[in-house]
Design a protein around this nucleic acid. Structure first.
Lengths: 210, 210
DNA sequence: GGTAAATTTATACAAATGATTAAAAAATTT
DNA sequence: AAATTTTTTAATCATTTGTATAAATTTACC
């Protein structure tokens, strides 16, 4: 079995090379379309090493998916549970953070959502921040604003969906949007940067529509 | 080879049964994860009949994808090129139509987008309404409003993305959203019905933020 | 009602693919 | 430096999966 301490002064250990390659290939193509041989090639490594270090393609996938989900959720819970920021500030921070993350890693949302489609039970159980979200400071702040009459209590799920949709959807539909708008990579990324300022404004106005 | 005229008074011809099953399975699981045996079973039909009526899994997939894309795009171009409606009316009609369609067929957006991810070139060429959209009446109306100072010309792509995101994203993230919100099917669908009225209002306010 | 064409079935094949194994090579320990 | 352990390689296996084929069955036609 593999031992971490054995790592020599290579750029990356074989185990790391495989994990990084698996992340790339899985996130780009999804579990079903990803071939173990694709991953081995991407890693520049013998095929049998995948099974040597990770018992199976499934195990390797689970590791990548777990890390991806955890990393993705980490940002939300941190920001949404800060007692010292207003809701408006939280939205700004969240949008800023995720637009930045997704500009660098645009495949993540599609990866997560399309795998959830294929194995909803499996993955949604492992979802961190399920009850965490509903008890978050941010949700309470939404509730307070609703109580204050800014908008209806019934609108809260909609506003959350909108925040998510406005931020994440462009990346889910990236190839579609780029083709439809005749955009290149740079133009798309520029739009995403612009949204850092715009989404918070839009959210603010949507939270005032009665 | 198959001949249409041979159809007896069955509920559905074998060819139709296969196509319907293929639509269900492909839209639910995607091309890579869909097995020809899944489709045959869903259709209640011998496996070899898939290749008898449609030469290969790929051919069958292309038919389903083409029909799905065409049907999906049909609604947009019709509404967006009507000379006799205002932009506000167009948005209302579009949102109404697509929320209705997607409530009945929630897998379509994820199906289209995830297959585009896997074969961007193939599918995006076949995309109807690529140049159609940019020359549409609706886009001109957006331009007029921008000229009138309601919002900036630079905001138009954003507003289009927002319209798409607010309408389509909930379906792309449906399992995720249902789990996070603790919603059942009925509650989710109720939210989608509510959005028929809300999205046009939100769009209206977003088109006034300067 | 018999014959030809079509549909359907059972079976099997071939390629792709995840996984295994035994031997070789490299690294570590003694 | 020898021995032991770890890592890597090449080759192969077993299953899955898309597809083909030949026989059986059903339908259409005269």
């Amino acid at each position: 079995m593999a031992k971490k301490k054995v790592m020599r002064e290579m750029d990356f250990s074989t185990e790391e090379k495989i994990k990084n390659a698996a992340r790339v290939v899985f996130q780009k193509k999804g579990l079903a379309a990803a071939r173990t041989r694709d991953i081995a090639e991407e890693a520049g490594v013998n095929l049998a090493l995948l099974n040597y270090y990770f018992r199976s393609k499934e195990k390797l996938f689970e590791i990548i998916m777990y890390e991806t989900l955890t990393n993705f959720a980490k940002g939300i819970t941190g920001i949404f549970n800060d007692e010292n920021t207003t809701l408006e500030e939280k939205i700004g921070l969240l949008v800023e953070k995720y637009l930045e993350m997704l500009t660098n890693d645009p495949n993540i949302p599609m990866f997560i959502l399309s795998e959830i489609r294929n194995r909803p039970k499996d993955l949604l159980e492992k979802l961190p921040a399920k009850s965490v979200l509903s008890n978050s400071v941010a949700i309470n702040q939404f509730g307070e604003m609703a109580a204050g009459g800014e908008f209806s209590e019934k609108d809260i799920p909609h506003l959350l969906m909108n925040l998510l949709g406005l931020t994440v959807f462009p990346f889910v539909g990236k190839p579609f949007i780029m083709a439809l708008g005749g955009l290149d990579e740079l133009e798309f990324n520029t739009l995403m940067q612009e949204r850092k300022k715009m989404i918070p404004l839009w959210m603010k106005t949507m939270m005032s529509v009665k």
